[in-house]
Design a protein around this nucleic acid. Structure first.
Length: 946
DNA sequence: AAGGTCACG
DNA sequence: GACGTACGTGACCTTG
């Protein structure tokens, strides 16, 4: 059988569209866009490499569409009528496809009045008929009709999707359509195709189409059976739109007997002559391929092992990574140089020196990690390299110490330190100084002015170091990066796990080494980082947004919020009862007891024991059992799926919220105090931990029960103020989209307006789809993602995206320009100058690069929104005080929402102030031409305030 | 410690 | 040449 001929038919037209959308917008030395051509060239190269292999081609031809009209337009004038025009930078690439094909010395077939699909069908059948095997290089679903097994002197026809590197034979077709290739046309005729504008039957998608054909065996049978069906929407549609289905059946039928413009024999492959190929590669600057051609002595088919792109996956292109500077001429950290301050006299000496120095690095040591409940154990100060001290204040008390060490009494020390820490003339520098602010506030010290090395690092380098806790701005990490110094770790000093001791039990010599080192390192970091701010454009965001926010957020953390413990406790009990009942039901259905909370065990029960369909996923080879999968199973009539979903929901609510929040109530204040991280999110958003109060349930009825437990003190109410659609408003401004700006100015429903622009009409369906598309845009879109969300094919999603860009060209420009900028400079920027770095934006790893691109599209929008609410927060309490409303307390921030607690009698006066401060927060630095809408609600719970 | 899942904007 | 599919978070559970 070794002399079997194998014909490859390359569907060039569909390939170039796919290549266009998945490759970066490359241009050749002359400025012609060539991204898609490059993709096409590498694909041909790969095919040519397979020439000598068993499965490889003996004959090959590229088939192209000649023009946009075909005989199908005569049958149905709307055929492909709503297809948007090809993107501007794709058009000049069409002729280059022919050039590329010729460069490989391959035949290129096209014929007026026929689509590439028809030529492919005719060639495939002709070749198979004379016993050749045929591989169609395409992933077009219409072509799947041709897949066949062969035998009896007839060759086999399969398909090859080079992008997914997947062979498509009969099983793959059956998997996709639920029927064999001979019935694919019937399914397609029912479901239609919005890209080609094949009508199908309105309201019937792939699922229903497959089901009908499976049940009835053919399209005609299914249509005939409609009369006998029980009354339903489906029945009506089948009857009413029968003609649509019939014309669709004709349109999807491939013409298999077209006259062949060139005989099959002429497609014989004889290697690839290098000269024309080299000339082509050179002309368009495809240098890596050119190198491979040179190295491979002529033919790509002999250069299998060379793949330069693969070898340096790690190189991160040219995005600046410079985090390191020349080290100043400082002595190395010397932990034995630090002083342990144990007398009032020495303390006063240090305070006097610090006053004179004008800058002091400060660090506090405490009994626990939680700033609100922690007790002060000691304070360290640093005035220069190795010029640092530790002032122990509450060490001893256990048998670690033979007797309590000499220490300045806490109150005396506080009195001595207070003038220094509150002096306008002395800058206090800390690493995460918000923590120290909160600790010291409990002792009546209101530290100011301040600088924070962690926040400075964030303003300079957000996104640069993606690994490590604290987003790469923790002290140990900064010390390593900027000073080449390894700090004494907390673990080394206090131990870990059960053997851990509180800092107050650490002997003074060791405590001094650790604590004073922190202050010393903080001082050095400040000396290195602070001067970079003006040089690297970080001053604006640090001085105007982040630094002033530190004491504000510290205040919010100290305020905390009251939660109704009894209400949470009741909910916990209710959830416990219900989960255990559901657990029993699930075990009954499964026929055995297992741990429902274990995705592994659950997956084995669902897919192995109970035999539901659903593939493996991920590297672990474990079944996925997430919400989307379970909802699908539930829709297919698996009773266990809904039970598991309910079980999951309730146990999540119980463990993460009703149980955990009770434990989070502070014994001293009776309230819950979250901790906000100012450097938690690369985009500039805050994040909230211990507990996270930025993800309290709201989307479901049962979840909102938890929100009801967040309450005001007697005589007060909670007030929630939300920015409405702030990110879309910012996108409308930043991308300059007149229709969206106008809609916001008029207070219109923005998703409805988008639906009108996109689909020409507004109903529930189009509005929902428009909303999804709007969000997709903000998040950096991909047609697979959008397709998944909308439940449509990726190519249909692509058509929607194209329409969106056509209607709102500003958005496309914004995305293009943002990415160009990020690729060139390495970072994105918000309207207020916040930078986020994307070191992988030019990565050769496509997944990595595309991930960075999506994040980079989103970062300026999400980040600008974060900047705005930060500005509002900083101005809020002074504005309220000025309005005579000092009793309004700002408690929480949830990205686009602020939560306040205030006397009921203050609501009327406070609401307009809050509204105004938020709405005007961008000004005067940025004058938006879109209004910022703010919605305010009040109530006796956080839920009621919405 | 990692992976899976799910709560929020 | 292959990879995974919407951005940004944090907490909890199970398992290795």
């Amino acid at each position: 059988m070794s002399d079997t001929q194998h014909l490859y038919l390359v569907d060039g037209s569909s390939y170039i569209f796919r290549a266009y959308h998945r490759l970066p917008p490359l241009t050749d030395p002359e400025g012609t866009p060539v991204g898609a051509v490059y993709g096409y060239t590498t694909m041909l190269w790969k095919l040519a490499e397979d020439l000598d292999k068993a499965e490889g081609p003996t004959h090959l031809a590229v088939i192209l569409d000649k023009d946009s009209k075909s005989f199908r337009n005569e049958i149905y004038d709307q055929y492909k009528a709503n297809r948007p025009p090809a993107p501007e930078d794709l058009v000049p690439q069409f002729p280059l496809i022919r050039d590329a094909t010729r460069a490989f010395s391959l035949p290129c077939i096209e014929e007026a009045g026929l689509e590439a699909d028809d030529l492919i069908a005719s060639y495939a059948r002709a070749a198979a008929k004379q016993g050749w095997d045929v591989t169609i290089v395409s992933s077009d679903k219409d072509l799947m009709q041709l897949v066949s097994k062969g035998g009896d002197g007839v060759g086999e026809i399969d398909m090859l999707d080079t992008m997914k590197n997947q062979r498509i034979s009969i099983p793959e077709v059956e998997e996709k359509f639920g029927v064999g290739p001979e019935l694919v046309g019937d399914v397609l005729a029912l479901m239609g195709d919005s890209v080609d504008n094949i009508p199908g039957i309105f309201g019937i998608g792939p699922k229903t189409a497959t089901k009908l054909i499976q049940e009835h065996g053919s399209l005609t049978a299914a249509l005939d059976a409609a009369e006998g069906m029980k009354a339903s929407k489906l029945k009506e549609r089948l009857i009413e739109h029968r003609a649509d289905a019939e014309i669709s059946r004709v349109l999807v039928t491939l013409k298999e007997d077209a006259t062949l413009p060139q005989p099959l024999e002429e497609f014989k492959l004889d290697g690839v002559p290098p000269e024309p190929l080299a000339a082509f590669l050179e002309k368009h600057g495809f240098t890596s391929l050119l190198r491979r051609l040179d190295a491979g002595a002529g033919s790509p088919s002999k250069t299998n092992d060379l793949n330069p792109a693969k070898q340096d996956n790690k190189s991160e292109a040219h995005a600046p990574t410079g985090n390191r500077q020349e080290l100043p001429e400082w002595p190395d950290v010397d932990r034995d140089a630090y002083e342990c301050v144990q007398s009032m006299e020495r303390l006063e000496h240090w305070v006097a020196r610090a006053m004179a120095a004008r800058v002091v690095a400060v660090d506090t040591e405490t009994s626990s990690l939680d700033a609100i409940s922690a007790d002060l154990v000691g304070v360290s100060l640093a005035l220069g390299p190795n010029d640092a001290c530790y002032i122990p204040l509450a060490h001893g008390g256990s048998d670690m110490f033979a007797e309590k060490p000499d220490q300045v009494p806490l109150e005396d020390a506080v009195a001595a330190l207070k003038p220094l820490l509150e002096s306008d003339a002395v800058l206090k520098v800390g690493q995460n100084i918000k923590y120290d602010l909160n600790v010291l506030a409990r002792h009546g010290i209101h530290v100011a002015p301040i600088d924070d090395t962690m926040v400075i690092s964030f303003a300079l380098d957000a996104g640069r170091g993606t690994d490590g806790i604290g987003g790469g701005h923790g002290m140990d990490e900064l010390a390593e990066r900027h000073l080449g110094h390894t700090c004494l770790s907390f673990k080394e000093v206090c131990g870990t796990g059960k053997k851990a001791i509180p800092f107050g039990e650490v002997p003074l010599d060791k405590a001094t080494q650790y604590a004073a080192e922190d202050a010393d390192v903080t001082w050095r970091l400040w000396k290195m980082l602070k001067p970079r701010l003006p040089v690297e454009g970080g001053t604006r965001i640090y001085e105007r947004a982040d630094r002033p926010l530190i004491p504000v957020v510290a205040g919010m953390e100290r305020e905390g919020i009251k939660v109704d413990r009894a209400a949470l406790s009741r909910l916990s009990e209710e959830f416990a009862t219900r989960t255990s009942a559901i657990e029993g039901e699930i075990h009954a259905i499964a026929g055995e007891e297992f741990t429902i909370g274990s995705p592994k065990q659950l997956g084995d029960i669902l897919f192995d024991k109970l035999g539901y369909k659903g593939g493996r996923k991920g590297k672990s080879g474990q079944y996925s059992t997430d919400q989307a999968i379970l909802e699908r199973l539930a829709g297919e009539g698996a009773p266990i799926a809904n039970k598991v979903l309910e079980y999951r929901q309730l146990s999540k609510l119980k463990s993460t919220y009703t149980d955990a929040l009770q434990d989070a109530i502070n014994a001293r204040t009776g309230r819950v105090h979250t901790s906000y991280s100012l450097v938690g999110a690369q985009t500039g958003r805050l994040s909230s931990t211990d507990p996270n109060l930025q993800n309290i349930p709201i989307r479901t009825e049962i979840g909102r029960e938890i929100r009801k437990a967040f309450v005001p003190e007697d005589g007060n109410v909670l007030l929630a103020a939300d920015y409405s659609q702030i990110e879309l408003r910012l996108a409308a401004y930043m991308a300059d989209v007149p229709q969206l700006k106008e809609a916001f100015a008029n207070g219109e429903d923005i998703h409805a307006r988008t639906a009108q622009e996109m689909f020409g009409s507004v109903d529930r369906d189009t509005r929902a789809r428009a909303k999804t598309v709007n969000f997709a845009i903000l998040y950096g879109i991909s047609r697979w993602g959008l397709g998944g969300r909308l439940g449509i094919e990726a190519d249909e999603a692509q058509a929607i995206i194209d329409t969106y860009f056509q209607r709102f060209p500003g958005i496309q420009n914004y995305i293009h320009e943002t990415l160009e900028n990020v690729r060139e400079r390495g970072y994105s920027e918000t309207l207020f100058g916040r930078k986020t770095w994307f070191p992988r934006i030019n990565s050769k790893n496509q997944a990595e690069r595309q991930g960075s691109e999506r994040a980079a599209i989103n970062a300026p929008i999400q980040g600008t929104s974060a900047d705005i609410i930060k500005r509002a927060m900083t101005r809020m309490l002074p504005a309220l005080a000025e309005a005579g409303l000092p009793r309004v307390r700002m408690l929480l921030q949830v990205h686009d929402e602020l939560v306040f607690e205030l006397p009921t009698s203050d609501v009327d006066a406070a609401s307009p102030v809050i509204e105004r401060v938020m709405a005007e927060a961008a000004q005067p630095a940025v004058m938006l031409d879109v209004p910022l809408g703010v919605e305010i609600g009040t109530g006796t719970s956080w839920d009621a305030a919405h």
